[in-house]
């Protein structure tokens, strides 16, 4: 680091950075998303992906799923800071390699090509629950659900088969087995 005359201390060594999935249950009210997102941007935390929708109409609850990276200390802070927000009910925190949790992202992929290539494209996707949502003799829209890196690689592999547009969601998460997160 260049010699600085800053009034503040120099950063200490960074710890190991992990990817975590943070699940936040919030009151579904105006500006709640900007409170959550603003907390991340304001404190310099990272957001890799974000998924949010109302999950309980009666109690007016939304579930926000955020994929983030940080040192263990930063992840701990994220959880504690989120818990302080008034509309936040509870916060779940899972490591991405946690075997007890399922993570899924969805992608809609538009292929513009001849039927032969579309078939090959479909074949490329076959491991990821492909569903054809729309098909003409010149195009197809395929829906897949998979992990982030799998979708990344599918998209790469589909390029030669006429992929013209990809639309993706952020990850959503659910624990395995009968237990629910409290």
């Amino acid at each position: 680091m260049a010699k600085s005359k800053s009034a503040y201390s120099t950063p200490t060594k960074l710890g190991k950075i992990d990817t975590h999935i943070i699940v936040v249950w919030v009151d579904n009210e105006a500006s709640v998303l900007s409170r959550v997102v603003g907390l991340f941007s304001g404190r310099g935390y990272n957001i890799e992906s974000l998924a949010v929708a109302e999950v309980d109409q009666r109690n007016n609850l939304s579930r926000i799923t955020i994929v983030t990276t940080g040192t263990p200390q930063v992840i701990e802070q994220i959880v504690l800071q989120l818990k302080k927000l008034v509309p936040v009910h509870k916060v779940g925190n899972f490591k991405r390699d946690d075997k007890k949790v399922i993570f899924k992202e969805m992608a809609l992929l538009k292929i513009a090509a001849n039927p032969g290539k579309i078939k090959k494209a479909l074949n490329t996707c076959k491991k990821y629950n492909p569903v054809i949502l729309d098909q003409t003799n010149k195009s197809a829209v395929i829906q897949i659900t998979a992990l982030r890196r799998e979708i990344d690689s599918v998209i790469k592999n589909l390029k030669p088969f006429g992929l013209v547009s990809a639309s993706r969601t952020g990850a959503v998460a659910m624990t395995r087995g009968a237990e629910i997160f409290n």
Partner: peptide, 15 residues
Amino acid sequence: TGITRPCTKHNWLVK
């Protein structure tokens, strides 16, 4: 409410 969101514990716009 947008401007004061990061500098308050919480804020409300009464609609």
